[in-house]
Design a protein around this nucleic acid. Structure first.
Length: 211
DNA sequence: CGCCAGGGCCATA
DNA sequence: TATGGCCATGGC
């Protein structure tokens, strides 16, 4: 996976700093990570706005499940996601809803804990680790796989296989991981959707344009 | 109209 | 380990 850092620089030059993830607080980030599962961010934003002041761990922990589901209705899969938010909040309660206290634990330990939470898979866990807990785990999403595949990389079969290979070929830097993922999302939105639009694509010269 | 979106769980073989 | 069905709204 040579040239990964060059890809980062190319995207950074094309799109500028992303300042990713878009959230005001770590808890909001975690909620967004659940709500955006297989869902557009615009639908997630509607739900976050709808929650408003209720976007707090104490409210999520205490609110009726059906009521929570209705509050996040616009993000889709709302019945499942309501359960997931409850479960994640329960994990957070173990640290007294204190992000510094949670971040004091080892990254791998936290990852194991998060993966044990119902509704938190690898991508969601790594998102939370990176953006809420500042742990150096690279977030692999469908965009990452699609872009790297189209550029011509040989993609490992498993999630962690690809994650580790990416991490091995980049400086172990939380800021770089976070920005790179944000740049990939931006690039996907502009040029590298399932149906690509290649006008003005900054990596067009190396893109194999394979499905 | 149908397709798609910043996944994950569960059942099955 | 690897598929397939399921969950669901909203933009295009």
């Amino acid at each position: 996976m040579n040239g990964l850092h060059e890809l980062y620089n190319t995207l950074l030059n094309a799109y500028g700093q992303r300042n990713w993830w878009p959230a005001k607080t770590p808890f909001e980030m975690m909620v967004g990570a659940i709500l955006t599962q297989n869902t557009t961010w615009t639908n997630v934003e509607k739900a976050l706005v709808n929650l408003g002041d209720r976007l707090s761990p104490t409210f999520i922990a205490g609110v009726d499940l059906g009521e929570l589901a209705q509050l996040i209705r616009s993000s889709g899969y709302y019945n499942q996601k309501a359960v997931k938010l409850k479960a994640l909040t329960q994990w957070y309660a173990g640290y007294g809803y204190n992000i510094e206290k949670a971040a004091a634990s080892d990254g791998e330990v936290l990852r194991t804990e998060l993966l044990a939470v119902k509704g938190v898979g690898r991508e969601t866990a790594d998102s939370i680790l990176l953006y809420a807990l500042n742990k150096p785990f690279f977030v692999v999403d469908t965009y990452t796989k699609r872009i790297l595949h189209r550029i011509g990389y040989d993609i490992p079969g498993t999630y962690d296989g690809l994650r580790l290979e990416i991490e091995e070929n980049l400086p172990r830097d939380v800021y770089l991981y976070g920005e790179f993922h944000g740049l990939i999302v931006e690039h996907a939105k502009r040029h590298c959707k399932k149906k690509p639009s290649c006008e003005g694509c900054p990596v067009e010269s190396v893109c194999r344009q394979r499905s």
